[in-house]
Simulated scan of single mutants.
Amino acid sequence: MKTIHLICAARPNFMKIAPLYHALKNEPWCVPEIVHTGQHYDYQMSQSFFDDFGLPSANHYLGGGSGTHAEQTAQTMIAYEKLCLEKSRPDLVVVVGDVNATLACSIAAKKIHLPVAHLEAGLRSFDRTMPEEINRVVTDSISDCFWTTSEDADENLKKEGINPEHIYLVGNIMIDTYCMMKEKIEKSDAYKTFGLKKKEYIILTLHRPVNVDVKETLESILNTVEQIDLPIIFPVHPRTRKNLDVIHPLPQNITLCEPLGYVDFMSLVSNSSSVISDSGGIQEETTYLGIPCFTMRNTTERPITVTMGSNQLVSVDNLLEKIKHPQTGSIPPLWDGKAAGRIKQVLKSAL
């Protein structure tokens, strides 16, 4: 029986490990263990996702908490190394996405000679001012196995000198999560709790420092969004809340709410007319659903959502013009809800 650590830290990670955990939990050749580093620790950002996805409590909780990038990374490295040396030494460490825990646990694992597999490897924005880009590049430089969502990610890894024999195009596991939860999502009708009509409202999410950490920037975005003639639902990320609290008055067409669980949030997204966001994952989910997405960023590490999907990169200056010309696009290859099964076969052969 091979022990596999599934590292999760923040809500995007919980979405990605859930299908893989369920694919592996009954296999006779492995024991998947969930390692929660603690980056997101309040109920709506953490435990609600475990509840939604039918995940058990984490096997190991590192208690990383908040702090600067360096503090989070250092605390997680120390705690994870201690776990591996003293309590649970895995046969494989699976890190996902691009959060600080992804970097921290991959470094800690490699320093004590543990193999690392990176789920969502090869994504690149080519913007080194993004902390997530540093996490992606460094993690890929030391990983042993690379599971990718699209061919452009494969090409990025090959250009960086990664052996093609270690790269596996498995598809997008975020779509596995949606397919796994689709029945519950369709039953939710969360938009009705806000008094909204299907396809007659917009979802807004903002959390990246470049958009929310400077009051004037956030205010400019909100002033622009105020000019859109539709109701807007804005689930507020904790890091965004502090600056919103000093902006008065807020636009009349915006309704604020607390962060939502996965089922209710995806119900809102799937019934919306469009989404305005600076998130990474939402670009993929809206592409799969054919819902126009307007990403408030200059770059994206998921360019296939622009070239094939429903995503457009926008700024405050051109949002109002772009939103007049939405695109629905098409679904990229292997975004079919079967990525976890492909990963399972790779793992079975390797382990």
Rank of each mutant, 00 (worst) to 15 (best):
S88V: 10
V96P: 00
M180C: 11
E155L: 15
Q75I: 14
V138G: 07
D91W: 08
S88K: 04
K111E: 15
D176E: 02
K158Y: 00
P131H: 02
V95T: 01
L206G: 07
L206E: 07
K110W: 06
L169A: 13
I78W: 02
E155T: 15
C179F: 14
F146V: 09
E160N: 05
L83D: 06
A74M: 12
L204F: 11
K158H: 01
E81C: 03
E81S: 05
R136L: 02
S188V: 05
S125I: 06
T148S: 02
L103T: 01
L119N: 05
T76Y: 04
K184H: 13
D154T: 14
E81R: 00
R124K: 08
E151C: 14
S150N: 15
N163R: 02
A190Q: 09
E186W: 12
T148Q: 01
E160Q: 08
R124I: 09
E132D: 02
G97N: 02
S125D: 09
T177P: 05
A121W: 01
A190K: 11
A108L: 04
K187T: 09
P115H: 13
W147K: 08
R124W: 03
V116Q: 05
V94S: 07
T76K: 01
D154H: 13
S143Q: 05
I142M: 08
K182C: 09
V93D: 08
N163T: 10
K197R: 14
M174S: 11
A190C: 13
D91H: 05
V95K: 01
N156P: 00
L204M: 09
I175Q: 00
I185T: 08
L92E: 04
C145S: 15
V94M: 13
K199I: 02
R136E: 00
I167R: 06
E183N: 12
A121C: 07
D189I: 13
E183Q: 10
C105K: 03
Y178T: 07
K87L: 13
E165N: 11
I112L: 06
V96M: 10
C179Y: 14
W147S: 08
L169F: 14
V95M: 02
E151F: 14
F194L: 06
M174Y: 10
K82W: 11
T102N: 02
A153E: 00
D154M: 15
V138S: 06
R124G: 03
A153C: 07
E133P: 05
N156F: 07
I202Q: 08
I202E: 11
E200L: 04
L157E: 00
Q75W: 10
D91S: 09
Y178W: 13
I142A: 06
R124T: 03
T139P: 04
E200S: 12
K187M: 10
E86A: 13
D140I: 09
E151I: 15
S125C: 10
D91Y: 10
M77D: 12
T193H: 12
L123A: 09
H118I: 05
K87N: 11
A108T: 06
K192Y: 10
N163Q: 07
